[in-house]
C-alpha cells in the first residue's frame, strides 16, 4: 500500500544524514516500528532494495525493532495487547480503549562508514 512512499521517505532521511556526516556508505538502518503503525516490514525491505541501487544505501541492512501494541481500558484500567485484533478489554469486555503504545514509526539510528 503506502510502503513505497514510506520507504522513499526513509531513504531521503538516511541519505541526508549520511551526507551530513560525510559518510560514503550506509551499512545499517535501525527502525522502530509500532505494531499499530501500519508499516509492513517485508514491503519496506522490498522497495528499499529496489530504490537503493547505485546510491550510498545500497546493500544496507534494515533492522526492524517492533514495538508491541498496547491498549488501556478506560473503564477498569487494564492494559492489554489486542492479539486477535479485537479491541475489547479482556477483563471487563469494555470497548472504551485507548492506544498507549504501538504507534511509533521512526528511524532510531543509522550505521555508516
Amino acid at each position: 500500500m503506502h510502503e513505497l512512499a514510506i520507504t522513499e521517505s526513509i531513504l531521503n532521511i538516511v541519505l541526508d544524514e549520511a551526507k551530513a556526516a560525510q559518510a560514503n556508505k550506509i551499512t545499517k538502518i535501525n527502525l522502530v516500528i509500532g505494531e499499530l503503525s501500519g508499516v509492513v516490514s517485508d514491503c519496506v525491505q522490498f522497495y528499499f532494495d529496489f530504490l537503493t541501487k547505485d546510491n550510498a544505501a545500497e546493500g544496507a541492512t534494515i533492522d526492524f525493532k517492533t514495538v508491541p501494541a498496547q491498549l488501556r481500558c478506560r473503564d477498569c484500567s487494564t492494559s492489554f495487547n489486542p492479539k486477535d485484533s479485537a479491541w475489547l478489554c479482556p477483563s471487563c469486555q469494555g470497548a472504551s480503549v485507548e492506544v498507549t503504545s504501538g504507534r511509533d514509526c521512526y528511524i532510531e539510528s543509522i550505521e555508516v562508514e
Binding site: 514510506i6 521517505s9 526513509i10 532521511i13 538516511v14 544524514e17 549520511a18 556526516a21 559518510a23 527502525l31 508499516v39 514509526c105 521512526y106 528511524i107 532510531e108 539510528s109 543509522i110 550505521e111 555508516v112
Partner: peptide, 8 residues
C-alpha cells in the same frame, strides 16, 4: 553510528 530519531 549516527542517532537519527526522526519520524518516518
Amino acid at each position: 553510528k549516527i542517532e537519527v530519531l526522526k519520524g518516518i
